[in-house]
Design a protein around this nucleic acid. Structure first.
Lengths: 252, 252
DNA sequence: ATCAAAACAATCAAATTCGATCAAATATAA
DNA sequence: TTATATTTGATCGAATTTGATTGTTTTGAT
């Protein structure tokens, strides 16, 4: 049994049980403990798990944008809930903008059965999600490929968006608060979100409750940029009331 | 038993069991271990499996975009040969156009180690191939997603291409003959190929010998559109001579 | 705070595998 | 046919991997 195969098996063991000790893994694979420890060290360096004394545990959630690659990522339940609500806003025949982000991506599986749609997006995972879906025509924004976010960004992408018009736009954000409005990690995503919002009749902001009240470092738009906030049920009613008092329509 | 046949059998063995060691394969095929190791190296370079110490394991499932890659398909050997030759024409620092087509796609694996490059393409598989390659920046043509061909087409895509300039363009074709020049199945691909050719200083046509002398139904460009024809060694020398007589530079 | 058991890092030795080079066999071309 | 290329198999030194040993650090309980 080679090293890569062992790595796979170790990760699989961690999927079944979040926390395992080295002797347990060694017994399961029939390999000496010392070798398992070496494997764990490599896997830890690759960020695939976290080392503990005597064993290893599953890797913690990563940055927001890489989270959607991670199937069992934290907050996935909430994202699924939001995705379902957002998809319910879409009617057959609509033309919609979808930006790149894990929460917006969660909409895709629910949109597949909606009916004929035209989707305009800068997200490669979104394109992949609809690749085998005949009823949905996809228009992919062109431009520089941002490999980290698996999406298109840059000047050309913005120009491309400006030449389209859609009925609804669904955009995500890294932070949302009454004081600072919408905030983001990166200028790139922020500019795309703004451009899409400007070209749509109705703008939906998708934001799970864990991000509400938190600010990222870049302020890029006021609360007035969007028409409806779609979030989950874990949002305290008091917070929801505050947003409603500011004139925000809250869907949860 | 020839080399291509062995490759197919090795891949079949890996389909049955994700992980095999070289001696196991050697015994199964009745071939020496050293030869199996050479085969595995080739297969690994083609991305059809992953080498491990002492054996090999199945290639990890990649992006959905690469689904069209027909692993052990007919003509794959010739495409690989052409891809290698074409990639050798590219120098570090180049800006190149790559169109959508399996022959052009075969270049990608050989381009990964070339050095810093800027790639402009309308092909989703090409984007996927360079997704984890830091040295290569990719500019994806925007437009309507053609799900069948996994590429972008349409008016907007053509406009997008026109706003760029590249040193070299690598394009495929469905048919090539002295009488009818370049022929294609579909208007969509033909228009993209023409647009890319118009924006590049040097145009390479990638065409395996099986397509030479054959015509598809749509004539879209004369032989003068390209500067160099890259093909395989199965092209009869007499045919090659005919092309050279017409002023075509043939690389094989 | 102290002590014992367990786990860790580092070094070493044995086994296996790999890469490069060379010779024989086969296929291909002139 | 002869000459050239390609492919297969073998050998040898280099590199990788595995498991053991040693001393040090961490953990948990007294």
């Amino acid at each position: 049994m080679g090293l890569p195969e062992r790595k796979q098996k170790i990760l699989k063991l961690l999927d079944q049980h979040d926390n395992r000790d080295v002797q347990e893994i060694a017994d399961a694979l029939g390999i000496s403990a010392i070798t398992i420890r070496r494997d764990l060290q490599q896997l830890a360096e690759e960020g695939l798990l976290v080392r503990t004394h005597g064993g290893a545990m599953k890797a913690p959630a990563l940055h927001p944008f890489t989270a959607f690659v991670d199937k069992a990522g934290v907050g996935q339940e909430r994202k699924q809930h939001i995705g379902k609500l957002a998809a319910a806003q879409v009617k057959p025949g609509d033309t919609i903008f979808l930006d790149c982000g894990s929460t917006v991506f969660a909409m895709c599986q629910h949109l597949r059965k909606t009916g004929p749609l035209r989707v305009i997006t800068n997200s490669l995972p979104v394109v992949a999600a609809f690749m085998d879906c005949d009823q949905i025509t996809v228009n992919l924004i062109g431009g520089e490929v941002d490999k980290e976010r698996k999406a298109m960004h840059g000047q050309r992408a913005l120009q491309h968006i400006d030449s389209y018009h859609g009925m609804k736009a669904f955009i995500g954000t890294d932070g949302l608060s009454l004081r600072n409005g919408l905030t983001a990690f990166s200028e790139k995503e922020a500019s795309i979100s703004k451009a899409m919002a400007a070209q749509a009749d109705i703008v939906y902001l998708l934001c799970d409750s864990g991000k509400i009240g938190k600010d990222s470092y870049l302020k890029y738009a006021p609360l007035t940029m969007f028409d409806h906030l779609i979030t989950d049920r874990q949002l305290p009613t008091s917070t929801a009331a505050q947003f409603k008092a500011k004139g925000v329509s809250v869907i949860s």
